[in-house]
Design a protein around this nucleic acid. Structure first.
Length: 886
RNA sequence: GCCGGGAUGGCGAAAAGGCAGACGCGACGGUUUUAAAAACCGUUGCCGCAAGGCGUGCGGGUUCGAGUCCCGCUCCCGGCACCA
């Protein structure tokens, strides 16, 4: 009996990680024909300290694809880096006194070691962190290019202000109207901020989605479409009574209803209001505006908010019929959508209808529903569908409302008081943050010039190290000298109209989504130099165009309209700056599901849940395996079994990947996260499931080593299945079938779960004692090659044990022959009237009339048919036989 | 409200109009063990002693044949939401 070595994952995994490093196995070249190349990328992590299970899943999927593509003969670019600017570093500084830079780079070192321990096949030579001066500085270059192209501007508008952190928050960092970190209220404040003109690309961002159809998840495409929110309509200018020079312009998608306007609603912040509101109404309006502003956008516009309005004392004149309509300030009108003003047509708009009823305003019908349509009286409900314009509509009376949209817009346009307009819900991207740990915005301010961009030769703007973190405001603002000191260490000056004058740096830093908007391009040319400045340039167009678009991009769906929209915008802007000609960055997108786990909790008197770690809970199950009761180990009292939810520290349902790797090894971890579900579905963590994956690897290890000695010198069976009999023949056919199914599963959907199932099935069917050595060798070498992308270390080891040399990826992906999958005879399912009633074994080569004769003559067929008369016989060769009887 | 995605055993899931439930987990029975764990073997959709019947959220339809296609519902998940 052969001595079988114990499966020690740590030993095997270290050995092969060393091998890959020594052979530089994953370093990508830039000079091979693009069609032989494949760029696979996972969304890079924020270095928060340790990997979590979400990372493990995301990166395992990407790595399995990278390794699979390499085995298929592709030259693969698979890079990794760090999205390393961001708020948690500053939070750590406040809470623990660690400097953000030290904290960040220590985290990177730890997490890099974890990634290496997982055996991910990254080209580490291309690694960078966004906080590296080399990256941040080149981003400042790009920022200045964007300024030159008119894609950057500074304006004052309402922003989310966190009262806890004393800084601006992005919309996504506002959860239910509260600051995501402190839980403190977020209020709207009027502040000057820097914006990127993403709206200049609204139409292209929308149109580009059509090409991504079929390659990106439908959910992401629709979310982006909704977010961009194109809306076609008209702007209409209303004169203002008593103010001949002024007008109030509204945006509407229903210009056909303009004859039914009975009042106007405008945002309380609308700039024209102060000029048109009579003194009698000013005080009230100021109070109303203050009240509206005191609540967050969430409360103001959320579905719980009540519609409130205030008559401003001013009147507008309807350009189509010269009617005088009152102007209301209303809390539901958004200042920066459309024109910040709305014409209200209560007869044909539900919201206007409700408002008119609440404030006693007239409701005038101007669109008549088709006669066949039953509609409630207009005083009771708005009619919003198409119809015919009523006699109130002047020359347009009798016109179909859809046609009238166009006709009225044209009529208004001819008179200079209206125009066809397309608006977007998408707003420009507010990129300034009042924070330290981010990339400085390369602008300075001076008395006579205001905001002035720095020259590229003055870059980079580096962050000072000696800053104080007290949790109040932006540390850069409080630094004694940084903002006023030039890169030469002398006082910062700019050349103004009257000579040199003192200047002060912008102390806002960029939103960290800026870094993640071009890192995928930088990976293509991470070492690019700029001969003109003797330093690294942002991007090398040739190499960016070589690698982009990324063939497969993998990450969580939570970035559907954030990172993925910003990155698409940035790529288009980079093209217009001359850095690339590939306008879409990601050809195919895979959004992996979350890693979830059951939760246990108990509610205290106030209803606040107290969560329990799974190992603090004892579970009782019934005969079917359902949980019937759960109690806390510490007191024996029941706890509630919560939903299966995304792993999170606050719910205490996390598993530390480090623990998993130490107990079972990286290969088991990788196998488990790819098993059981396709990548885009949520996976439910279970210790039992992990043990199942580990058990499979142990079985594979055992069977290979039990026969390695005898098989090492044996060639894998390469002949026809036909030449074999019995189990040998069956296994050869199975091997071909399994290779085909694995290949199809990966090519179609990256369905690693079904590929793994195929491999398990093959292993389950192997009975080594009954197989010829060449056939066993074929089966085993096939298995380890099919599994190599998923659990590469053990497969390398077993490949070597079976006599393979030069590493398993060099061995290539196994080939199959469909003809070899098929036996000489087929066991046809026999249906009677579509119900399965038996099996008919018939020779494979039969078809057409021959086959039909053989079926009719088959004893099992006659038996199943009995006395019943056959009215139709369906025979699908190779598939099924269905007899239709009366 | 609008948009998108779903619903298959006790659980996660497979099945590209052709044998529903592959594979894994759990459960049950067994082997081994002082015992447990681990490992291995077997059973496991539901009802029924069986023959057999019934089964892919519900109701219709197309088809020789539907989890899959069409029409109409119900429920669940996600996104957006006074967006004019």
């Amino acid at each position: 009996m052969t001595e079988i070595p114990a499966y020690e994952p740590a030993v095997v995994e270290r050995k092969w990680q060393q091998f890959w490093e020594d052979t530089q196995a994953f370093v990508a070249r830039d000079d091979l024909p693009r069609e032989q190349c494949y760029y696979v990328l996972e969304m890079f992590p924020y270095p928060s300290g340790r990997l979590h299970m979400g990372h493990v899943r995301n990166y395992t999927i990407g790595d399995a694809v990278a390794r699979y593509k390499r085995m298929r003969g592709f030259h693969v670019l698979h890079p990794m880096g760090w999205d390393s600017f961001g708020l948690p570093a500053e939070q750590a500084a406040i809470e623990r006194g660690a400097h953000p830079r030290t904290w960040t780079y220590e985290n990177i070192a730890y997490m890099r070691a974890q990634l290496k321990r997982m055996g991910f096949s990254y080209d580490w030579t291309r690694e960078f962190a966004c906080s590296d001066p080399g990256y941040a500085a080149r981003e400042q270059d790009i920022f200045l290019d964007l300024v030159e192209r008119g894609l950057v501007y500074r304006k004052s508008s309402l922003v989310n202000w966190s009262t806890g952190l004393e800084c601006v928050l992005a919309n996504e960092q506002v959860i239910d109207g509260k600051c995501w970190r402190t839980g403190m209220p977020v209020v709207q404040r009027e502040l000057p901020q820097w914006y990127l003109r993403i709206t200049a690309y609204a139409e292209e961002l929308l149109a580009g989605l059509d090409e991504l159809e079929g390659h990106w998840p439908e959910a992401v495409i629709t979310q982006q479409r909704n977010w961009i929110g194109r809306s076609q309509g008209a702007e209409i200018d209303f004169a203002i009574e008593g103010h001949p020079g002024l007008k109030l312009t509204v945006f509407t998608t229903r210009p056909d209803t303009v004859f039914g306007v009975t009042f106007m609603s405008v945002a309380p912040e609308h700039p024209v209001l102060p000029r048109i509101v009579p003194a009698t109404h000013r005080e009230q309006l100021a109070a109303f505006t203050a009240e509206v502003r005191s609540v967050s956008a969430h409360e103001r516009l959320g579905d719980t908010a009540t519609k409130k309005g205030l008559f401003t004392g001013a009147y507008a004149i309807n350009p189509v019929n010269d009617e005088r309509v009152p102007i209301y300030a209303a809390n539901f009108v958004v200042a920066d959508y459309g024109t910040g003003a709305v014409m209200a047509v209560p007869a044909h708009d539900e919201r206007d209808h409700a408002f008119a009823r609440a404030y006693g305003l007239p409701i005038i019908e101007v669109i008549r529903p088709p006669a066949e349509r039953q509609t409630p009286p207009i005083a009771e409900a708005a009619y919003t569908a198409p119809g015919v314009l009523t006699e109130r509509c002047g020359i347009f009376a009798g016109m179909d409302s859809e046609q009238a949209k166009r006709a009225i817009t044209d009529w208004l346009a001819q008179r200079g008081c209206g125009r066809a307009v397309t608006t977007y819900r998408l707003r420009d991207w507010c990129v300034s943050r009042q924070r330290y740990w981010g990339n400085p915005i390369p602008f300075v301010y001076s008395e006579s010039l205001g905001a002035t961009p720095l020259k590229k030769s003055d870059l980079p703007v580096l962050l000072p190290d000696d800053v104080v973190f007290d949790g109040r405001g932006n540390p850069l603002d409080k630094h004694p000298t940084w903002a006023t000191t030039g890169s030469d260490g002398r006082p910062l000056v700019v050349r103004g109209p009257h000579g040199l004058e003192p200047a002060r740096r912008e102390t806002d830093t960029m939103d960290t989504f800026v870094e993640s908007s071009w890192y995928f391009a930088r990976f293509a040319c991470h070492d690019n130099r700029r001969p003109d400045l003797g330093c690294a340039g942002p991007l090398d167009r040739q190499r960016v165009d070589h690698w982009l678009p990324v063939d497969l991009y993998i990450g969580g769906i939570e970035h559907a309209v954030l990172h993925l929209l910003y990155a698409r915008f940035f790529q288009k802007a980079l093209c217009d700056l001359g850095y690339s000609s590939k306008r879409e960055p990601f050809k195919r997108l895979l959004c992996q599901g979350m890693v979830c786990m059951e939760t246990f909790f108990r509610q205290d008197a106030s209803g606040k849940p107290e969560y329990f770690y799974p190992d603090e809970v004892e579970i009782e199950r019934d005969g079917k395996g359902r949980i019937v009761r759960a109690v806390a180990k510490r007191d024996g009292l029941p706890v509630q079994v919560g939903r299966v939810e995304k792993m999170s520290k606050s719910k205490r349902n996390t598993v530390d990947p480090q623990q998993l790797i130490e107990t079972y090894g990286a290969d088991t971890a990788r196998l488990f996260v790819l098993s059981n579900v396709p990548p885009e579905l949520d996976v439910v963590w279970s210790d039992d499931g992990v043990r199942g994956s580990h058990r499979f690897l142990k079985r594979l290890w055992h069977i290979v080593h039990a026969h390695a000695a005898e098989l090492r010198g044996v060639a894998a069976y390469a002949g026809k299945a036909q030449a074999l009999v019995g189990r040998d023949q069956a296994i050869v056919r199975k091997v071909h079938a399994v290779i085909k199914r694995c290949t199809d599963a990966l090519e179609r959907d990256f369905a690693f779960n079904t590929a793994i199932a195929q491999c398990m099935e093959l292993l389950n069917e192997l009975e080594p004692a009954h197989l010829r050595p060449e056939v066993l060798k074929l089966a085993l070498t096939t298995l380890v090659r099919l599994l190599a992308p998923i659990c590469p270390h053990i497969c390398e080891e077993l490949w070597e044990a079976l006599g393979g040399v030069g590493g398993i990826s060099a061995a290539g992906w196994p080939a199959y022959d469909e003809a070899e999958m098929l036996g000489d005879s087929i066991e046809y399912p026999l249906q009677i009237n579509g119900r399965l009633r038996g099996k008919l074994t018939l020779p494979r080569e039969l078809s057409g009339e021959e086959l039909e004769r053989a079926v009719r003559a088959h004893p099992a067929f006659r038996a199943a048919l009995g006395e019943r008369a056959l009215s139709k016989l369906i025979i699908v060769p190779g598939k099924i036989i269905n007899a239709v009887v009366a």
